[in-house]
Write a protein that binds this DNA or RNA. Structure first.
Length: 369
RNA sequence: GCUGGAAUCGUCUAGUGGCAAUGACAAGAGACUGUAAAUCUCUCGCCUUCGGGCUUCGUAGGUUCGAGUCCUACUUCCAGCA
């Protein structure tokens, strides 16, 4: 069983430590999105220096390229990409939802590679096998997101996710038998925006022999608090919970932590960075805007990231306007630092009892309320 | 000096009688939440009560119902010959 210590609690929120074979994660924590075994534009050294505790790679993408056998041959994900701290893998379930032309059956999902048109099939069993080959510390069960917001579709997707969870657990147990490494499995809670379905899904997952939980299918801050309260009041307190895919908006991180989530991942910060949308304490700014041409101040005056300590807004704008690779590097360092550090501060404020004040001050300033 | 060729939005460019005029770049702005994203969208002559109105394709004339497109002259640039 994955070890998870809880040091303090405040309502549903908690401060803890997840102990993985590759080290500890102090929670709440923001996990960097390293979909293709890399955080886009950044080196692992840079990720280390900006304070990232863990990364999350995607099974779907790694099956297509370079193939999970290759990662196994390299000695596992940590050896392959030189990230020697904790790792997660997402199951590939999200791609069923996000890609066109997938054929879903009870057995699994058939699709053509978007790269070369080859036919692939992912099943709960093959997803588990792939994740074991990749060798991340924490695996996600192969889940199914609904094809629409309708209750019927949500319910169908939830039930399929549950049936697939049982197959994932069986396969994971088989793979764990005789394995030389410790790898852990999270169940994924579905149910869309329907509280009764969320409750049903949480109950189902809560009773299973898994190491933690992913909460999937949450897409907006609206209604997120209610969903998380429903789900996290049911999930067992002593296992970690990962909020899948949320964290582009700082409010998501506050609400997520406040209502009992321990880790987050999101592609938003690095994607925003590559597109020139950079976090400041006063909200996101588009560094490409003409008004920053002569702005020789740092992006964030009291930010300790490499970008803010060394470069000005005018310089960053110049790098973006000239389409220099370094623009994306510096911007990604800053945005990733920003969210990692925001969650670090949330953790500290929960530990010392100042969370509500910190949250109010932060969000008031960020969203100009 | 002679003979050809060329002049169209900030730049390059499409356009051979129905055109406010093609495409790219540049510029301005917006979007992005378990990454088919170093991507995508919009604006880009002036004005507008969003119906339209006005002024544009080196300059000045001309032909024509109608000219960026045809004709004449001029200006500038390019090539060849002197």
């Amino acid at each position: 069983m994955l070890e998870f210590d809880i040091h303090s609690k405040q309502g549903l929120a908690r401060v803890g430590t997840i102990h993985t074979p590759h080290g500890d994660i102090e929670t709440p924590a923001f996990v960097g999105a390293a979909t293709r075994a890399v955080v886009k534009a950044l080196t692992m050294k840079e990720m280390n220096e900006l304070g990232s505790q863990a990364i999350l790679a995607n099974t779907y993408h790694l099956i297509l390229r370079p193939g999970t056998d290759l990662i196994k041959e390299a000695g596992g994900l940590a050896e392959f990409n030189s990230w020697h701290k904790p790792t997660f893998t997402d199951s590939g379930g999200f791609q069923i939802f996000s890609l066109p032309n997938v054929k879903i059956s009870e057995q699994g999902v058939k699709f053509k590679s978007h790269i070369d048109g080859r036919n692939f099939e992912i099943t709960p069993e093959s997803s588990m096998q792939a994740q074991w080959a990749i060798g991340a510390d924490i695996h996600m069960a192969f889940d199914h997101l609904a094809k629409s917001e309708s209750r019927a579709d949500m319910e169908e997707a939830m039930h399929r996710t549950h049936r697939w969870l049982d197959r994932c657990i069986a396969e994971h147990r088989d793979l764990a038998d005789g394995a030389t490494t410790e790898q852990y499995l999270y169940a994924v809670v579905q149910g869309g925006t329907f509280n009764d379905l969320r409750a049903k899904s949480a109950k189902y997952c809560a009773e299973k022999p898994v190491d933690g939980f992913g909460i999937g299918g949450v897409f907006t801050a609206d209604g997120m608090a209610e969903i998380l309260q429903t789900v996290n009041n049911i999930l067992p307190e002593n296992k970690p919970r990962h909020l899948l895919g949320m964290g582009e908006e700082p409010i998501d991180l506050f609400v997520g932590a406040e209502f009992g989530c321990d880790t987050f991942d999101c592609v938003g910060p690095t994607r925003m960075a590559r597109n020139g949308s950079l976090y400041t304490k006063d909200g996101r700014i588009n560094i490409k805007n003409a008004k920053y041409t002569h702005d020789f101040s740092p992006l964030e005056p009291d930010c300790d990231c490499e970008c803010c300590k060394n470069y000005t807004r005018a310089y960053l704008r110049h790098l973006f306007k000239t389409d220099e690779i370094t623009a994306k590097v510096l911007a990604s360092i800053h945005n990733e630092y920003f969210v990692v550090h925001t969650v670090d501060r949330i953790r500290e404020s929960l530990a010392d009892g100042t969370f509500q004040t910190f949250k109010n001050d932060y969000l008031t300033r960020y969203y100009h309320k």
